[in-house]
Design a protein around this nucleic acid. Sequence first.
DNA 1: ATGTCC
Length: 501
Amino acid sequence: MTTYDADGITLERVREYVWEIPREGGMNAPARVLASERLLDEISQDRTLQQLRNAAHLPGVAKYALCMPDGHQGYGFPVGGVAGIDAEGGCISPGAIGYDINCGVRMMKTNLDYDDVRGREEELVESLFANVPSGLGGGGVVETDVDTVEEILARGMDWALEAGYAAEADLAHCEDEGYRPEADPSKVSAKAKDRGKNQVGSLGSGNHFLEVQRVTDVFREDVADAFGLRENQIVVLIHCGSRGLGHQVCTDYLRDIEKAHAGLLDRLPDKELAAAPAGSQLAEDYYGAMCAAINFAWVNRQLIMHRTRRVFERLFDRSWEEMDMQLLYDVAHNIGKREVHEVPVDAEGRPTGVDEAVDHDKRELFVHRKGATRAFPAGRPELPPAYGDVGQPILIPGSMGAGSYVLRGGENSIAETFGSTAHGAGRLMSRTQAKQEYWGEDVMDDLRDTHEVYVKAQSGATVAEEAPGVYKNVDEVVRVSDALGIGDKVARTFPVCNIKG
DNA sequence: ATGTCC
């Protein structure tokens, strides 16, 4: 058997690009890493593998805990981690969903070509930067009150439609139609709502951005046609989350769960994995609050897209409808969701690790995707009609120097990964290390001079933190996803201009 | 990711 040794953790090679940490000790299931050896070399440099092994200790983990090809260490649970956990006898863990609840990305199409924007990049980047709120702290497209925040939390994209910031088609092209009906705004703290009220329609900071891109390659012509993508087309990618509101929801519930379920926590290898048992009051309350923060993030991205349409209308002197600025899709990167999957079950019929299975059956799970994208294939009823025959669009932001990818949900994703794939290139180094290696102005000069990419940011430090060199090779991440049949390559894009916090 | 410690 081929094995891979990584500082105390031995992985067994199951087949090409599939590595397994066998079940041992307190693990409730094995763990799997989906990666090439080259990516595994990078993944094993930080605490990702330990965190993945720890995640397999969560009660009710079904089949195996997973790490996607872009995985790196996060708070308690890897970014790029996926766990399907029994929604009846298992648990829900905020750290396995992430602080930035429904951090995600959407792509808006246009009927413009690269030639239409060439020579006007600086005008475009200045206008976007002036009109789309970004950076740490407050300031959004809408600055509102707690009552309106509660409406947004309860109704998601439906609020944006009624308030005149969205078209019907925008709702249809979001995961879950931009609305989680289980949202319970009464379970979101006053402090979280207060942080959110002046951040509706704001990018934030860190790796969040708005990028105008051009399509450079099409790999699957039939799928690209169904998605409405073609070479040289201008598209806009928006990456951001639920800002201070979602962060506060995570903070609030981590604190409460640690206290109320200390017994469960004592049996876990890492305090950061704090989890609420399925069926407990805190599990229900956190789920309702998390769904509300998910709704908030969809509205956030919608308002940024709405403002982007206005900027394009002024610059190109046409209506957004005339420029066919339609939403391709909005995908969540950091969410937990009740989904039914076929899983191994034990003699009592409870979801279990793949080794202990006496049977397989459909069970409701809390699917935790943290830095991972849903990747449902053709035929799934959750997909919008336009994508029902080809699979859902998956958006994989790369870096400012490498470009990004559009994939489609692969045939094997349901069986292999609870219907999931990677969410980006994945960091290679910490933000602190990035700021030691790079200087923002130099990164911007280099991108402009060598790639004709125009960047404008609130802070030079943010540009240094997001320099192309801090990311893994996105081509390699996508190659593995495609080879495993969990997310198939459809098209590639390259930046034209980028604004960030 | 994040009013990067109430």
